[in-house]
Deep mutational scan, measured.
Amino acid sequence: AVSDRLIGRKGVVMEAISPQNSALVKVDGETWRATSGTVLDVGEEVSVKAIEGVKLVVEKLE
């Protein structure tokens, strides 16, 4: 799938994300809905860990 190429890519949080709420991230110039197990604020850099349906699963870039 096209989205599989995004695993391992870096992105930027466009809307705050919490474990209860998905929000938008920008990866390679494209906007995607994403979820995370932690709270992520706007502007934080993230890494794509997986794809669940049409959502990216991201975590904060260390």
Score class of each variant (00 low, 15 high):
Arg5Asp: 09
Ile7Val: 09
Val25Gln: 01
Lys10Trp: 11
Lys10Arg: 10
Val48Thr: 02
Val2Asp: 10
Arg33Glu: 15
Ala50Thr: 05
Leu24Pro: 03
Met14Trp: 06
Arg33Lys: 10
Ser3Glu: 08
Glu52Cys: 14
Lys55Met: 15
Arg5Tyr: 09
Lys10Ala: 06
Gly29Asp: 07
Gln20Lys: 10
Gly43Asp: 04
Ser22Met: 11
Ala16Thr: 11
Arg33Leu: 15
Ser3Thr: 11
Ser36Cys: 13
Leu40Tyr: 03
Gly11Met: 00
Gly8Pro: 02
Trp32His: 08
Leu40Glu: 01
Val54Asp: 15
Thr31Cys: 15
Glu44Ala: 09
Val57Tyr: 09
Ala1Val: 11
Lys26Asn: 10
Lys49Ile: 15
Ile7Pro: 05
Val39Ile: 12
Thr38Arg: 06
Val57Met: 05
Gly8Trp: 00
Val25Phe: 00
Leu61Asn: 06
Asp4Tyr: 07
Gly43Gln: 02
Thr31Ile: 15
Glu44Leu: 07
Lys60Glu: 03
Lys60Thr: 06
Leu56Gln: 00
Glu44His: 05
Val48Met: 01
Ala34Arg: 00
Val48Leu: 02
Ile51Thr: 05
Val25Glu: 02
Lys49Val: 15
Thr38Asn: 09
Val46Lys: 02
Glu15Asp: 06
Val48His: 01
Asp28Asn: 07
Asp4Val: 09
Val58Phe: 01
Ile7Asn: 04
Gly53Cys: 04
Asp4Ile: 11
Lys55Ile: 15
Val27Pro: 01
Lys10Ile: 13
Gly37Thr: 14
Gln20Thr: 13
Ser3Ala: 11
Gly29Thr: 04
Lys55Ser: 13
Val39Ala: 12
Lys60Asp: 02
Lys26Pro: 03
Leu40His: 03
Pro19Gly: 14
Gly37Tyr: 13
Glu15Gln: 12
Val13Thr: 04
Ala1Ile: 12
Asp28Phe: 03
Glu52Pro: 00
Gly11Leu: 00
Ala34Lys: 01
Lys49His: 06
Ala50Asn: 06
Thr35Tyr: 09
Val2Ser: 10
Ile7Leu: 08
Lys55Arg: 12
Glu30Arg: 08
Arg33Cys: 15
Ala34Trp: 01
Ile17Lys: 14
Val27Asp: 01
Met14Phe: 06
Thr31Arg: 05
Arg33Trp: 15
Val48Gly: 01
Asn21Ile: 08
Glu62Thr: 12
Gln20Val: 08
Leu61Asp: 06
Lys10Gln: 09
Ala23Gly: 15
Arg5Met: 07
Asp4Phe: 07
Glu15Cys: 14
Thr38Val: 11
Leu6Gly: 02
Ile17Gly: 15
Ala16Gln: 10
Gly8Gln: 01
Ala34Cys: 08
Ala50Gln: 06
Ser18Cys: 10
Glu44Arg: 04
Lys10Pro: 10
Arg5Gly: 08
Val57Ile: 11
Val25Lys: 00
Glu45Asn: 07
Ala16Met: 13
Leu40Gln: 01
Met14Thr: 08
Pro19Asp: 12
Leu24Thr: 07
Glu30Phe: 10
Gly43Thr: 02
Leu56Val: 06
Glu59Ser: 06
Ser47Gly: 05
Gly8Phe: 00
Gly43Ala: 03
Ala50Phe: 06
Lys26Ser: 11
Pro19Lys: 10
Val58Ala: 00
Met14Gly: 01
Lys60Ala: 07
Glu62Lys: 10
Lys10Phe: 11
Leu56Cys: 02
Met14His: 04
Glu45Cys: 15
Trp32Tyr: 15
Gly8Val: 02
Thr31Phe: 14
Ile7Met: 05
Ser36Asn: 04
Val13His: 01
Ala16His: 08
Thr38Ile: 08
Lys10His: 12
Pro19Ile: 09
Leu56Thr: 02
Lys60Pro: 09
Gly8Tyr: 02
Gly11Asn: 01
Thr38Cys: 13
Gly53Phe: 04
Val46Met: 01
Asn21Thr: 10
Ser47Cys: 15
Val57His: 06
Val12Arg: 04
Lys49Gly: 04
Arg33Ser: 12
Gly11Thr: 01
Val46Ala: 02
Ser22Glu: 14
Asp28Leu: 06
Ala50Pro: 00
Thr31Gln: 08
Val13Met: 09
Ala16Gly: 08
Leu40Phe: 05
Trp32Val: 03
Val12Gln: 06
Val57Pro: 01
Asn21Lys: 12
Lys49Phe: 07
Asp41Gln: 14
Gly37Gln: 13
Leu6Val: 05
Val48Cys: 02
Gly37Phe: 13
Glu15Lys: 09
Glu30Ser: 06
Ser3Trp: 11
Val48Phe: 00
Leu61Phe: 09
Glu52Asp: 13
Ile7Phe: 03
Asp28Arg: 00
Glu15Gly: 08
Val12Thr: 08
Ser36Tyr: 05
Val39Arg: 12
Gln20Cys: 14
Glu30Asn: 07
Val27Lys: 00
Ile51Asn: 03
Val42Thr: 05
Val48Ser: 00
Leu24Trp: 13
Ala1Asp: 11
Arg9Pro: 04
Val13Tyr: 02
Lys60Met: 05
Ala16Glu: 06
Thr35Gln: 07
Asp41Gly: 11
Ala50Ser: 09
Ile7Cys: 10
Val27Met: 03
Lys49Thr: 13
Gly53Trp: 03
Gly29Trp: 02
Leu61Thr: 08
Trp32Cys: 03
Leu61Ala: 08
Ser47His: 12
Asp41Val: 15
Gly37Arg: 10
Asp28Met: 07
Val58Leu: 04
Leu24Gln: 05
Met14Lys: 04
Val42Met: 05
Val58Tyr: 01
Ile51His: 04
Ala34Ile: 04
Val58Ile: 05
Glu44Asn: 09
Glu59Thr: 08
Arg33Ile: 14
Gly37Ala: 14
Thr31Tyr: 14
Ala1Glu: 11
Glu62Gln: 12
Val58Ser: 00
Lys49Glu: 04
Asn21Pro: 04
Val54Pro: 09
Lys10Gly: 06
Val2Leu: 13
Gly11Phe: 00
Arg9His: 11
Ile7His: 04
Trp32Glu: 03
Thr35Lys: 07
Glu59Trp: 03
Leu24His: 05
Val54Arg: 09
Val48Gln: 00
Gly43Asn: 05
Ser47Leu: 15
Gly11Cys: 08
Ile17Thr: 15
Gly11Val: 02
Met14Val: 14
Glu44Ile: 07
Val46His: 03
Val54Met: 14
Arg5Trp: 10
Arg9Ile: 07
Ile17Asn: 14
Glu15Val: 12
Glu30Gly: 05
Ser36Thr: 05
Ala50Val: 03
Val42Glu: 06
Asp28Gln: 05
Ser22Thr: 12
Thr35Gly: 04
Glu44Asp: 15
Val42Ile: 10
Gln20Arg: 08
Asp4Ser: 10
Gly43Glu: 01
Val58His: 00
Gln20Ser: 12
Ser47Asp: 05
Asn21His: 12
Ile51Arg: 04
Ser47Asn: 09
Val46Glu: 02
Glu44Tyr: 05
